[in-house]
Design a protein around this nucleic acid. Structure first.
Lengths: 214, 214
DNA sequence: ACCTGAACACCGTTCAAGT
DNA sequence: ACCTGAACACCGTTCAAGT
């Protein structure tokens, strides 16, 4: 058995922690955007001076990356919880609704995940990839194993694009945004469910919902 | 008739211009990202010193905004050119393909349009809204006037989400990305074309492609 | 009228000195 | 072992002085 390090005995016990720093940085990000996440302001929020942060995080880039990782984990948990075992279509609706709610609650944090950042600022990719898992499972129960992955990717791309545009405001959605979101979801589920081969695809995965006319 | 201002007579003719500055800034953005677009580096590229830029642009925020505006205009023109008057489905394919090609050629520039920026950095919204126009027109010829707007929005959200994820690399697309893009497009066109009412919508726009089973 | 160097405020980061 | 002030490099911005 090793004796280990006893912080009480140390000449200067830590007055903050990496977790507290990441949490403070994330709060500032949501409040005032990425540029506002300065080392000085984060330090102030956790009660130390700027230079002290470098005892807990490598540098600002590592801190930003840590925020992205934390948000990725949160989002993954949120989606996993929303996925129930009942009807796959209602499960899909629940997951996409939870996704949109999460993004609305964490707009700057979500934006960070897709910001065009230098490689050293990008969050952990393995964790990010795991987020799509529940969607693929629900999709498999609707379109079958074979198309599940591609169908899920189409849905994820749409959902991300929708909320991304909604937040950026670059393309305005007039009218009932909730209805537009529901419309898109139903259209995509319908589209990936069977009509995909109609536009000249190989008949390999041919699985039309209804016989051709005539 | 007014005599106007003659630059040749001026005590110090301009050695650069607003257009040249925006062009240089855009090139730096594509080469090394948004952070690299510093006043000093832009100035160096157009052959003046940093402070001189303030004679042509208000400040860095205005310069960034001008880059976004220029990219928005470029993208709009590119999509308008790609839209031909032939078969609406192939026209839609041409527009979405041109969109993806443009984003691949201007990744950081496109990312700028959707970056989570403070309001004063966001590009012109009117020009951005105009980009969707050709898509709505093509959609109208496929799904009819009534659903054209919502269908186009679904397609735009998907296309934006797809390329956004493709560039960010946050959700990896393994396998044939071109095929995944084609799959999504066909699925969405099929989905918005007629099956939308199946999930409990009001039958108002009911226009099923085929009779219910049984 | 535009360009420049000097100056200022601000931020990320390092480091020697404190405890 | 962690925290701090001082210091340095860098960047956005202003401004008086040049032409």
């Amino acid at each position: 058995m090793s004796i280990g390090y006893n912080p009480i005995m140390s000449p200067a016990p830590a007055r903050t922690s990496r977790d507290a720093i990441v949490l403070a940085a994330r709060a500032i990000l949501e409040e005032d955007g990425l540029e506002a996440v300065s080392m000085g302001r984060v330090a102030e929020r956790v009660g130390v001076r700027g230079p002290s942060l470098y005892k807990h995080v490598t540098d600002r880039a590592a801190l930003i990356r840590a925020i992205g990782d934390a948000i990725t984990v949160d989002l993954g948990r949120t989606l996993a919880v929303a996925l129930d075992d009942g009807d796959p279509r209602s499960s899909l609706r629940a997951v996409t609704a939870a996704f949109r709610t999460f993004v609305h609650a964490n707009p700057n944090g979500y934006g960070l995940l897709f910001a065009h950042l230098e490689p050293n600022l990008q969050p952990d990719q393995a964790a990010a990839a795991a987020i799509g898992e529940p969607l693929v499972l629900a999709m498999a129960r609707i379109v079958g194993e074979q198309d599940a992955l591609e169908a899920a990717r189409t849905l994820v791309a749409w959902a991300h694009g929708f909320v991304s545009m909604e937040l950026a405001g670059t393309f305005r959605l007039g009218g009932d945004v909730d209805a537009a979101y529901a419309f898109g979801l139903e259209a995509i589920v319908a589209g990936v469910s069977g009509s995909v081969t109609q536009a000249g695809d190989s008949p390999r995965r041919g699985r039309r919902r209804c016989p051709p006319p005539g």
